[in-house]
């Protein structure tokens, strides 16, 4: 399972990053936490993207994960990082599994828009419900790890990076299995897949549920690293748009790509807000068009080209 190059890079790179985090300045650790949290959601969208499916509503699962953490914290006083993470991922996964029964029959823009509609229904509910924090959202306490309340964010960073490593390894393996390979074939020709004897609906349902679990986990981790949740930065359609943007930016080539793409996104955003606060959308939109026209494989295609020319 861990014999291929990608797995080795993920493992070794991940451990090095965890060590690096111990000595790195706070702001870098923060960027890495945000980047890696979000990258989990991108990992799921990558699988869908390879299958030819783009969801313009995965903020639904991202938000479910984040709000589960908030509710666990505020209503039930749950502080443990793993309980919160599992809670967020499982609830989002359950929702994804149920919604998946409908979603597996949709393709193209219908798939994209039904996801948008569902996420906006949740957004509408939360924005108008006082007990769910309305537009202000909630502040979330720093999580405890194995019962210990850490004094810095470093232990949370270690947890997030570990989760990222494990998820990347699992998805990397999944993409090598028969059902995991059924991405491009479904995009190319569904009829043939059915005639070969595999249910396209089942394959898509599984991928969709996986993407929901990952997005939920991403939301839960993001909520804990930010220390707060609010509808506009967790569930609004612009969040879904951001997730799609990072997916395209990263490229579908490899499970490492989402992590690089998410970090580039975080850095890009931080600098853009400092240097040209009014040009953020222009930068994102311009990057979008550039990638679609000139770099369809995203950042990953640059890296793999670089790797090939040096070796």
């Amino acid at each position: 399972m861990l014999r291929d190059n990608t797995s080795k890079v993920v493992l070794i790179g991940g451990i090095l990053i965890i060590l690096f985090g111990a000595v790195a300045p706070n702001w870098i650790v923060n960027q890495l936490m945000f980047g890696f949290s979000r990258a989990l959601a991108i990992l799921g969208l990558l699988v869908l993207w390879r299958t030819g499916l783009v969801s313009f509503g995965h903020a639904f699962y991202f938000g479910l994960g984040a709000y589960t953490v908030a509710i666990l914290d505020i209503q039930l006083g749950v502080t443990d990082v793993f309980v919160r993470l599992l809670g967020g991922a499982c609830l989002a996964g359950l929702a994804g599994f149920l919604v998946g029964f409908i979603m597996r029959n949709y393709r193209d823009i219908f798939f994209a828009m039904l996801n948008t509609a569902i996420s906006m229904v949740l957004y509408g509910i939360i924005v108008k419900t006082e007990s769910l924090g309305s537009t202000d959202g909630f502040a979330i306490s720093l999580p405890t790890i194995f019962g210990v309340a850490p004094e810095t964010k470093y232990p949370l960073f270690v947890v997030i990076t570990t989760v990222a490593i494990v998820s990347a390894l699992l998805i990397n393996f999944y993409l090598k299995t028969t059902i995991g390979r059924l991405t491009t074939p479904i995009r190319d020709n569904e009829i043939r897949v059915e005639y070969l004897g595999f249910s396209v609906a089942h394959a898509i349902h599984l991928k969709y549920t996986m993407s929901a679990i990952l997005a939920g986990g991403a939301g839960a981790l993001m909520a804990m690293s930010l220390g707060q949740v609010d509808p506009d930065s967790m569930i609004n359609w612009t969040v879904s748009g951001e997730l799609v943007f990072i997916t395209i930016l990263s490229g579908p080539g490899n499970v490492i790509a989402p992590f690089i793409g998410s970090l580039v996104f975080e850095v890009l955003r931080t600098y853009a807000f400092e240097l040209a606060p009014h040009l953020w959308q222009l930068i994102v939109g311009g990057t979008f068009l550039t990638i679609i026209f000139f770099l369809p494989g995203g950042i990953w295609s640059l890296i793999s080209k670089l790797g090939r020319s040096t070796s």
């Binding site: 030819g52 783009v54 193209d108 823009i109 994209a112 748009g241 799609v244 395209i248 009014h278 040009l279 953020w280 959308q281 222009l282 994102v284 939109g285 311009g286 990057t287 979008f288 068009l289 679609i292 026209f293």
Partner: peptide, 28 residues
């Protein structure tokens, strides 16, 4: 014009990119 042969979804994403760009051009 240069995208008609490409995936429907990709064209949606391109128009989304355009939308973002034009939003900021309005501000400028």
């Amino acid at each position: 014009k240069h995208m008609y042969h490409r995936d429907e979804v990709l064209i949606v994403l391109a128009t989304f990119g355009l939308f973002l760009v034009l939003e900021d051009v309005i501000l400028i």
